[in-house]
Design a protein around this nucleic acid. Structure first.
Lengths: 195, 195
DNA sequence: GCCGTTATGTAACCTAAGTTACAAAACGGT
DNA sequence: ACCGTTTTGTAACTTAGGTTACATAACGGC
């Protein structure tokens, strides 16, 4: 064997992810990644890879965590209207409480040039598709339980509408739009859903 | 007086705006701005200013054009449901026909670090507010004409919901999401509006 | 036709970016 | 205790970034 690594891999991954989340890919420098992680660039290159590899790893970390914290409830067999409302409200709230609000790493990355890269675009697509599937599942479960009355076609439409609201909240939250504006989007989305 | 300028100011502005629209602020270099405009950097600095000033000018050019091409119909006294539908459909279509789709310069800029700059953030806020006001006007006119039945509070909610769809279409269009997904968002938004 | 003023072209500047060489140090198996 | 392997630290390298000096050229008013 060989020499053992001196730092905490998870903590390093977390700090790198947070920095990319805040600043995006292109506007984050190696020097900042060093400072955030506490490692020097030799350690980063050895342990993870170049900047591109670090970003891909950050995308994986982010989607794993966001999936667990935000989407898991919608993906559950017990999912329902309440989970949809809770998630959208949470996003509207986060925009007001986080300073500065960071929105969603994947949404931000999708607007950058790096989104053209294969490894990155695959992860972006997969995450977006997962979000859609999560809402789709929640709508299905809510229908099964009698909270809603939706046939398959109606549920498809609703799914994309909710996906759109989800993305709009992430983007406009990061853009600094006021919390009540975001909450009105949620109000209307829920109203329409129950109509 | 002094020596006269040799290039077409408007064409230069347009090419700079298009490039920033495609690549964003941080990922556009002076060399690319030179190539796109056909000017050398001395002319750019003399005629417009530094990169920051070029970007601010691009924001102004973009918002002026987008306002004229897309928002003017919604801002008119004759605005109505048909104008809302036409605009949303156009955005969904543009995502499929433009290659690569560019979305909206302002939405993209709002996710970059430069959005923290005063001159930039002011323009972003102003443009977003203008979009909202445009939808608000169209909803009001549609109500006045009897196409819809909305009181003031309901119109406020609808306004932000449509604003959200608008932004989602821009962002997800640029992200390369499929056209039918975007069109389902529009379908649902219009359905809810007429309900 | 001179002169201040402004535009142009070349080229340099200075900093920062991402990446990599090289030597030294720490580890485990034998 | 040696040895191959991998980590670490320092520091350099190479390129590209945005910005600016300087000399030259074109213009209009007097």
């Amino acid at each position: 064997m060989a020499r053992q690594i001196e730092y905490d891999r998870q903590k390093v991954q977390q700090s790198l992810t947070d920095l990319f989340w805040q600043k995006g890919f292109a506007e984050t420098s190696l020097a900042e990644l060093e400072a955030a992680s506490g490692l020097n660039r030799r350690q980063l290159y050895n342990g993870i890879g170049d900047k591109h590899a670090m970003f891909v790893a950050a995308l994986d970390t982010f989607t794993e965590q966001a999936g667990r914290q935000f989407l898991a409830a919608l993906e559950s067999k017990d999912a329902g209207l309440g989970d949809i409302e809770a998630l959208l409200r949470l996003f509207a709230l986060a925009a007001s409480t986080d300073s500065p609000p960071r929105g969603c790493l994947v949404c931000t990355a999708s607007q950058e040039e790096i989104a053209g890269d294969g490894a990155v675009s695959g992860r972006i697509d997969a995450y977006f598709s997962r979000i859609r599937a999560a809402y789709r599942n929640a709508l299905q479960r809510a229908t099964d339980r009698g909270e809603l009355k939706l046939d398959a076609a109606a549920a498809d439409l609703r799914t994309d509408a909710l996906f759109g609201v989800h993305v709009a909240l992430c983007v406009l939250g990061r853009a600094g739009r006021p919390g009540d504006e975001l909450n009105r989007m949620v109000d209307q989305a829920l109203k329409d859903l129950r109509a």
